[in-house]
């Protein structure tokens, strides 16, 4: 029987090489490869594109030989490197990533337990990166790429990620509200927190419910 998109999986990796997160992600990719009837795609974004060159590439290349497809965000790559990534890594785009997700690829998330029900309509993106982190702007691009496909999106800012909602950092996120591109939420922490843009507070239970009933959860 021919594999359908429901048999395929995709994983987003933004962690830089040699980090614990990257090691976990590679383990998850291997598990997905063993258990998946269809295609398994790993999409590298942010600092994760550094996996596509140098010493970090070797272990992925070995997994690719076993059938893993390795795609690299072209914009994130070009911000950090010249030329092309090493084969078999290929340049791709955030829109293509979202297109795969929207057409039924199972999201493999190596950072969160709540992975969505696959039955819901909304995609949840959990932002935990502080605005001061080097590639935090690229998380906004990830969300905008999903919005460009008119996917229903909910963004939950959590922990240090709540800093994205304050002051100058909130400027880029505001477009999601102003143009009805995504719903914004935050979970916190300090009782006196006041977001600089319209965002709704969620307690832990509400956030869990949103994730559990989502079509999928992405934790960039």
């Amino acid at each position: 029987m021919q594999a359908t998109n429901d048999d395929n999986s995709i994983m987003l990796i933004r962690a830089e090489p040699q980090s614990v997160e990257a090691e976990n992600a590679q383990h998850e990719a291997l598990v997905a490869l063993r258990g998946c009837k269809g295609e398994v795609v790993v999409f590298f974004h942010g600092a994760g594109v550094d996996h596509a060159c140098g010493a970090a590439a070797g272990s992925w290349q070995r997994l690719a030989a076993r059938g893993l497809r390795l795609e690299v965000c072209s914009a994130a790559w070009q911000r950090r490197h010249e030329g092309e990534p090493e084969a078999p890594f290929v340049l791709s785009s955030l829109v293509r990533f979202w297109h795969r997700v929207a057409t039924g690829y199972r999201l493999v998330c190596h950072r969160e337990a709540g992975r969505g029900s696959r039955q819901g309509a909304t995609w949840v993106i959990i932002v935990t990166a502080a605005p001061s982190e080097a590639d935090s702007r690229e998380i906004l691009e990830l969300v905008l790429a999903g919005a460009s496909l008119e996917l229903p999106l909910a963004v939950i800012f959590r922990d240090r990620g709540c800093g994205q909602l304050v002051g100058e950092f909130a400027r880029g996120w505001r477009q999601l509200v102003d143009f009805d591109l995504a719903s914004l939420y935050y979970t916190l922490c300090a009782e006196d927190f006041e977001p600089g843009i319209p965002a709704s507070p969620l307690d832990r239970e509400q956030a869990g419910h949103l994730c559990n009933t989502a079509r999928g959860v992405i934790c960039p």
């Binding site: 906004l140 905008l144 460009s148 400027r171 880029g172 505001r174 477009q175 143009f179």
Partner: peptide, 17 residues
């Protein structure tokens, strides 16, 4: 105007709207 307000150009869907 969009660029100066938000720091990036508008999405095509925003522009079309």
């Amino acid at each position: 105007q969009h660029y100066h307000a938000y720091g990036n150009p508008p999405l095509m869907r925003v522009t079309v709207a």
